[in-house]
Structures are given as C-alpha cells and as structure tokens.
C-alpha cells in the first residue's frame, strides 16, 4: 500500500492513477461528510465529484508534512459542502426548505465535528490490532478495564497500557488532522 508521501509525489507528477487510489481509500468518507452536511444524496455525490476534481487541480497544495491525504480531502469537501449550503440559502432565502436547512446542522454535528469523527475513526482502524480491539471494547461496548481484561484474556496492566497508547495515538492524529476550527479551541461547553 503506497503511503501518502508516495501518493503526493505521484499526484504532483500528474499520475491520474494516484487520484484513483486516493478515491478508493477516501471517497466513501468524503461522500459521508458531504451527505451529513448538505443532507441529500444527489448534492453529496456532486460534492464528492467536485472535491476530487478540485484535489486534482490543486494537487500541488497537498503537503504530507502538514496532514494526511484523508484530512486534506475532507478539508476540501467540507469547504465545498459549506459553500453549497450557503449558495442554496442565497438562491432561495425565502423558502421554507432553506430555513430548515439553515438551522439544520445542530451544534453537535458541525461539519468540523464530522471531519473530526472521520479522522479519529480512520486512526482507530490503523492502530495495532490489540490496541484497537482494547479501545473498541472500551468505546463501543463500554467495558471497564478489568472487564476488557476478562474478555480478552490480557493482563490488566497490558489492557491499561493499550488504552493509554491508543488514546495517545488518537489524540495526536486529532490534533494534526482534525478540522481547524474544531471543538478543541472552543470553551468547556463544547468539549463534552
């Protein structure tokens, strides 16, 4: 599997296959983000298309030192989706549908927050197997550390160390790749 570095280089050299690789890896996350932000499938597919075409045109702007390919694509998609919402609102400011859309994304589900979720989910999928499994039991099944030790057969100390390292990895990725105006800069009211 080629790294983001290699993909970046191939993209810069004008290799369309590299864009295809990026699309196969991240197209579904881009579509998910678009769908969550604009709320309808046709627009979401359109935004996905526009995002990858923009990624192609702006491929020199991708710098693997500053974030992953996923974060870069989600950043483009987020801006395109928000622009779309705004232009819809502008076009039909008076109609009821738009009033609904303008108030649609609740605070919980800002585009930045969706990006953060996708980035953390992606990192979770990349963790070493035992670390990932341990965190999933804590996150998804809400198990305590002793319960996780029982379920997995791992010593309690190992469970704790997996959780600690896994959390550190997720957090690092969120800091690097999370949406810029995301919740971390907001006050305590947003943190939970």
């Amino acid at each position: 599997m080629s790294s983001d570095d290699e993909l970046a280089e191939r993209l810069r050299a004008g290799d369309e296959k590299a864009l295809r690789v990026a699309y196969e890896r991240h197209g579904s996350a881009v579509l998910y983000l678009a769908q969550r932000v604009v709320g309808n499938r046709a627009d979401a597919e359109d935004i996905t298309q526009v995002t990858f075409v923009a990624a192609w045109s702006g491929r020199d702007g991708f710098d693997p030192q500053r974030g992953t390919m996923l974060a870069w694509l989600l950043g483009i998609a987020r801006r395109k989706a928000v622009d779309r919402l705004r232009s819809v609102a502008r076009d039909q400011r008076a109609t009821e549908t738009v009033q609904a859309q303008q108030t649609a994304p609740p605070a919980e589900e800002t585009p930045e927050r969706i990006v953060d979720r996708l980035v953390v989910a992606d990192e979770l999928g990349r963790l070493p197997e035992e670390q990932r499994r341990t965190l999933e039991l804590a996150f998804f099944d809400d198990l305590t550390h002793p319960q996780i030790a029982t379920v997995t057969g791992l010593p309690l100390g190992t469970v704790k160390s997996h959780i600690r390292r896994g959390m550190a990895n997720l957090r690092r990725r969120w800091e690097v790749d999370g949406a810029p105006s995301g919740s971390r800069s907001a006050g305590p009211s947003r943190a939970l």
Binding site: G27, Y32, V120, R184
Partner: peptide, 30 residues
C-alpha cells in the same frame, strides 16, 4: 477535556467503519 473529546469521537466511530463506496457514476464524473 481533550482526552474526553477524543474518546467521545472514538465511541462514535463504530458506524464509520464500513462506509459504502460512492456509486460508479461519481468516479466517471470525476
């Protein structure tokens, strides 16, 4: 706060693990 936020994002990751691929016509349009 940051750790809690990350844990909360992580606990919402379950539904994001098997996201469906976009339909073929999206790539054709790209």
């Amino acid at each position: 706060q940051d750790l809690r936020h990350v844990a909360e994002l992580g606990s919402q990751a379950q539904e994001l693990r098997e996201l469906p691929d976009p339909p073929a016509h999206v790539w054709q349009a790209i």
